[in-house]
């Protein structure tokens, strides 16, 4: 039932932001096809430590495809070859013995490499700070069922809310644009009645911040949608563009950017 794979792994090594970085090649023998890609990286790292070498720094936490921490470009594709699958959920049975595998960090101007495969994605947090929320102080909420939400709206909101903030969309985009991320957040909140009061400010605030973070422009390649492990639909980008056009017309509205009143 279980097969053993021999692989040639080319892994990106970079000491820090100032280092140019390079690929390092490792021959992996007898890798079990029952394990996940990250477990294969664990095996590599244990071997490196045993040999007195520094293991490859890479990010991960839940290993269940939900926390959005793992982030590897595998053979040129963010999160690797499998559709709708994060790196941590990619299993070795999808590879075959003799394969050469190239592993790199997310590459984007707004996501500087910190070490090896680890990049800094805090730009996403700053985008959320700039309007990616509904202002609802604790304690002020009406009964949960006071405001029914039509199921279609709830479903559209949910579909967008499924974004795990991993940044694969940015890594996949030739322009390094964060459009799918921003649009997913906007679509989630803008489809809900609770999200209406701050709708315009939200869209303008998040887009401003995305510009400030040096994310590129969206020129409709839609590589983002193809790379997204949660299959966030690219319709959210069209929605954002519409919202932006409307909001830009009404710029005199006060903005929630920067947090609004607490």
């Amino acid at each position: 039932m279980s097969a053993k794979l021999d692989l040639k792994l080319h892994v990106w090594r970079q000491k820090g932001p100032g280092d140019a970085g390079r690929f390092e090649t490792h021959e992996m023998k007898g890798v079990s096809d029952h394990i996940s890609f990250l477990e294969m990286m664990d095996v590599l790292n244990e071997a490196l430590i045993a040999g007195g070498k520094e293991p490859v720094a890479f990010e991960h936490d839940c290993r269940e495809g939900i926390c959005g921490t793992c982030s590897m470009v595998i053979n040129g594709e963010p999160h690797g070859p499998l559709k709708a699958t994060t790196t941590c959920q990619l299993h070795m049975r999808h590879f075959k013995s003799g394969d050469e595998i190239w592993v790199e960090p997310w590459r984007a101007r707004a996501f500087p490499v910190m070490k090896d495969l680890v990049v800094d994605r805090n730009a996403f947090d700053r985008i959320v700070q700039n309007g990616g929320f509904i202002s609802a102080n604790t304690g002020s909420a009406p009964d949960g069922n006071a405001l029914p939400v039509p199921k279609t709206d709830a479903d559209l909101a949910f579909e967008a809310a499924a974004c795990i903030g991993c940044g694969a969309c940015v890594a996949a985009c030739p322009n390094g644009s964060a459009m799918l991320f921003v649009a997913a957040k906007a679509s989630h909140l803008n489809h809900l009645p609770q999200g209406q009061p701050e709708r315009a400010a939200r869209v303008l605030g998040m887009l401003d911040q995305a510009d400030a973070e040096l994310f590129g422009n969206c020129t409709n390649h839609y590589e983002c949608g193809a790379a997204c492990p949660k299959e966030i639909p690219v319709r959210v980008i069209a929605e954002l563009n519409r919202d932006y056009a409307k909001a830009a017309l009404a710029v005199e509205e006060p903005r929630a950017a920067g947090g609004g009143d607490g």
Binding site: F133, I134, A141, G144, P148, P150, K151, Q194
Partner: peptide
């Protein structure tokens, strides 16, 4: 009970039935 109210106000997309209720 307050938790659910709070989360709904924040835009947490809980499952809903066809009448739009939680």
């Amino acid at each position: 009970r307050n938790i659910i109210d709070q989360c709904v106000a924040q835009g947490v997309p809980f499952a809903r039935d066809y009448g739009g209720l939680l």
